[in-house]
């Protein structure tokens, strides 16, 4: 939907105001990371310093939490990529009994509040006497990461004309060759985008994690502890800024990856 008319002023103001509302708090994070004030959230900041960045870099607890988060996010993303792609291929390419159920099933972990996923996994762990570990966190994360990859992949599969797969097989490519030479190159950017978003989602997740982590501390759990009982305000400010930076880059990359693929591959007329 596009119009050549100019937008009415009230609409412009409302849209600009909305964008400001969305972005201003994030900008604030960047200012507070450099404040000299240690005890409160005073505005305007009395002065600026780079000192807290150095202090944060020397904090082993922050590093440990960061590494656990990265590990969990990496494993969850790999699992989500495998399961999400397979499911998307089946749902987009064929009709079978239970197809609707599966597409609903995949959405369920994000349609239901995270707390439900968290508590049900936790009670299942305790019923089955499974001790908390990296893998219990991964189990929870992969469950809701699948849908991210699935959504990206299914959209691309639908846009990739089925005739391409027919054409590859017609020209003599077997299942494996068709996958590696035709399907994969056509869905690669969608998978990369889905994978990065899944990574960002897992890296950031806190609600399910509080139920499946036990005594382990991921970066978001470290943040949460600081939010509930602030002890290290300046360090928290710096960590918050770092987290924003880490999530911004994959989003920008995912945007550029999916932007170009908007035409239907292989169905040009």
């Amino acid at each position: 939907m596009h119009s050549d008319n100019r937008a009415p002023l009230p609409l412009k103001l409302a849209a600009a105001g909305g964008l400001f509302f969305l972005l201003a708090p994030i900008a604030l994070i960047f200012v507070y990371a450099f404040t000299t004030e240690e005890k409160s959230f005073q505005w305007p900041p009395p002065g600026f310093t780079l000192k807290w960045i150095g202090v944060t870099l020397n904090r082993p607890d922050v590093w440990e939490a960061l590494f656990l988060s990265l590990r969990v996010a990496a494993i969850s993303t790999v699992i989500a990529l495998a399961l999400g792609t397979l499911t998307a291929a089946a749902v987009a390419r064929s009709r079978f009994f239970g197809r609707e159920t599966i597409s609903l099933l995949v959405i369920l972990p994000i349609a239901l509040p995270g707390i439900i996923t968290g508590i049900s996994l936790r009670s299942a762990f305790s019923l089955l006497e499974i001790p908390f570990s990296t893998w219990t966190i991964v189990l929870g994360h992969a469950t809701f990461c699948i849908v991210i990859v699935y959504n990206n992949a299914v959209a691309r599969f639908r846009r990739t004309s089925g005739a391409l797969i027919d054409a590859a097989m017609d020209l003599g490519a077997d299942g494996v060759q068709t996958f590696t030479l035709v399907i994969l190159p056509n869905i690669a950017t969608a998978l990369l985008a889905g994978g990065m978003l899944a990574f960002a989602l897992s890296f950031d997740e806190v609600i399910v994690t509080t139920f499946t982590a036990g005594q382990q501390t991921t970066l978001p759990i470290w943040m949460l502890e600081e939010l509930v009982r602030p002890r290290q305000r300046p360090v928290t400010n710096v960590v918050a800024m770092a987290v924003v930076l880490v999530t911004v880059l994959p989003i920008l990359a995912a945007y550029y990856l999916t932007r170009d693929g908007e035409h239907t591959a292989g169905a040009e007329k």
Partner: peptide, 11 residues
């Protein structure tokens, strides 16, 4: 996509 907790923290 920014961190949920960072956004809460910002507020």
């Amino acid at each position: 996509w920014s961190s949920y907790l960072v956004k809460v923290y910002a507020w």
